[in-house]
């Protein structure tokens, strides 16, 4: 590392150089993603156990989810993941304006995801397909269909909170980028948020078939 890059503004005192700082941040973020996987893992375990106990009920209940809304949301999230990756690429090439466009696209798609989610949720709340003791829908055969909807609301709900968090952070990134805080030398926060956003996408890639397609 040469002298000119020894002390940029973003370098904290306990790191020897920017490279070390960036690598540390990245490792830290990956470990954070690991904790996220295990956090969701508890819910996946919940799903797996009850599905193995009540396969018929899960199959009957999943038919009440709207495949097309779910599929649309999958497409929306995948495209948002692509725009996020392209935002990072643009910043690597120093094209700040493109970064802002792609980041804004990501936020827009995330909002679309949440709006579709809102319509799905409100429909289910209206019908009484609710978790646990709030469940009052009749017409799903099998034991304890409320547990299917507990799993559904918990897993998509926790995922939804992560999408909301992503929207907040990416909005902050747009502001920072337009103020010129990032450059091809330093764009760690965008890269970190990108990794987080891809994980959110990744989790949805599994939630979608588990709930909407095979139940």
């Amino acid at each position: 590392m040469n002298q000119t890059t020894a002390h940029p503004a973003h370098l904290q005192h306990h790191f020897t150089d920017a490279h070390q700082q960036a690598e540390s941040a990245k490792l830290g973020l990956w470990i954070f993603l690991l904790t996220e996987v295990l956090l969701f893992g508890g819910l996946f375990c919940f799903y797996a156990i009850y599905r193995s106990w009540n396969p018929d009920m899960f199959h009957n209940a999943h038919a009440f989810l709207n495949v097309w809304m779910g599929a649309t949301n999958t497409v929306v999230l995948i495209v948002s993941s692509l725009t996020m990756a392209l935002a990072i690429r643009s910043m690597q090439l120093g094209r700040r304006k493109h970064t802002i466009v792609f980041l804004s696209g990501t936020v827009f798609l995330a909002c679309v995801f949440m709006v579709i989610k809102y319509f799905e949720y409100s429909h289910k709340i209206h019908l009484g397909q609710l978790p646990g003791k709030w469940y009052f829908f009749e017409g799903i055969a099998g034991t304890n269909p409320h547990i299917f909807f507990s799993a559904y609301f918990l897993m998509t709900g926790l995922h939804g909170f992560h999408v909301l968090g992503g929207i907040a952070v990416i909005t902050w990134l747009i502001i920072k980028t337009s103020r010129g805080s990032f450059s091809p030398e330093y764009y760690t926060p965008i890269e970190m948020t990108g990794l987080y956003w891809h994980l959110v996408d990744l989790i949805w890639i599994f939630l979608f078939p588990l709930f909407y397609l095979i139940g």
Binding site: G42, F46, G132, K133, W134, I147, S150, L154
Partner: peptide
């Protein structure tokens, strides 16, 4: 989940809720 079981009654750990 345990808190939700107590507050909302999601039915994962409570035998009365299946």
């Amino acid at each position: 989940l345990l808190m939700l079981e107590r507050v909302v009654g999601i039915g994962i750990f409570d035998p009365a809720m299946g």
